[in-house]
Computed example of a mutant assay.
Amino acid sequence: MPFRRSGLIDRLHIHTRDVAAAKRFYRAVMGALGVPVVEGEDFFFADQLWIDAGERTGHVHLAFNAADPEMVDRFQQAGLAAGGRSNASPEDAGFHPGHYAVRLMDPDGNLIEAVWRGCLSPCA
């Protein structure tokens, strides 16, 4: 699987106490974003995101780029169906103009977001 290497981050490595639950969640949300997941017994990765079994050292806030608002919606639906919990929807106050995003809590309590940074009406 080729790596995108399109952004600032080379790799994000997080630990999970429940690999099966994390795989279920990330398979769903990565599928909604069109990113393949490569799985091993006690690890998996998707592009520059690496997750393996281990003790967590803290929570992270991770935002993925989405190609359009519909992809953000698919991300939300897939994540909720796979055990994620809603943290903020596109209708919630606090998002910047021109952003369309959802935030989910993954099975380990990490804040996982999908964001489209296009221009929605009205656009500033």
Rank of each mutant, 00 (worst) to 15 (best):
D92G: 03
S89C: 08
Q76V: 05
Q76A: 14
G83M: 02
P69T: 05
P90W: 01
N87W: 10
A101Q: 00
D73N: 12
A78N: 01
N87L: 14
R85N: 09
M105A: 15
V102I: 12
G98Y: 09
G98F: 05
F95P: 01
R103H: 11
F95A: 04
F75Q: 01
S86R: 15
G84R: 01
H96W: 08
A93F: 14
D92S: 15
A93H: 14
H99F: 08
N87V: 11
G94N: 11
V72S: 02
A93P: 12
M105C: 08
D73Y: 04
A82T: 07
S86A: 14
M105G: 09
G79Y: 02
S89D: 13
Q76T: 02
S86H: 06
M105N: 14
H96S: 10
F95Q: 01
P69S: 04
S89Q: 12
S89P: 04
M71Q: 15
H96M: 12
D92W: 14
G83V: 03
A88V: 05
N87G: 10
M105I: 14
A88D: 07
R74P: 05
R85L: 11
A78P: 04
R103I: 08
R103Y: 15
V102C: 13
R103S: 13
E91V: 06
H99C: 03
Y100H: 09
P97E: 04
F75I: 07
A82P: 02
D92F: 14
F75K: 02
H96R: 12
Q76M: 06
L104S: 11
A101G: 00
P97R: 12
A88M: 11
G94P: 14
G83K: 00
G79W: 01
G79N: 06
R85Y: 03
E91D: 13
N87M: 13
A88P: 02
R85P: 04
A88K: 13
M105Q: 14
M71P: 00
G84A: 11
Q77D: 09
D68L: 04
G84W: 00
D92R: 12
L104C: 08
M105T: 11
D92Q: 12
S89W: 06
H96L: 12
G79I: 10
P69M: 05
A78V: 08
A101C: 05
Q76P: 00
E91Q: 12
L104D: 09
G84V: 10
E70N: 09
G84D: 11
V102D: 03
G98D: 09
F75E: 02
D73S: 06
G98S: 06
E91Y: 02
M105F: 15
Y100T: 10
D73V: 05
A81E: 12
V72D: 01
A101N: 03
F95D: 01
G94T: 13
H96A: 13
H99G: 00
P69E: 05
A78I: 08
H99I: 05
A78Q: 02
E70W: 07
Q76H: 10
R74C: 12
F75M: 08
A82D: 01
R85C: 07
G84F: 00
A101H: 02
G79A: 09
P90A: 15
P69D: 03
Q77M: 07
V102N: 01
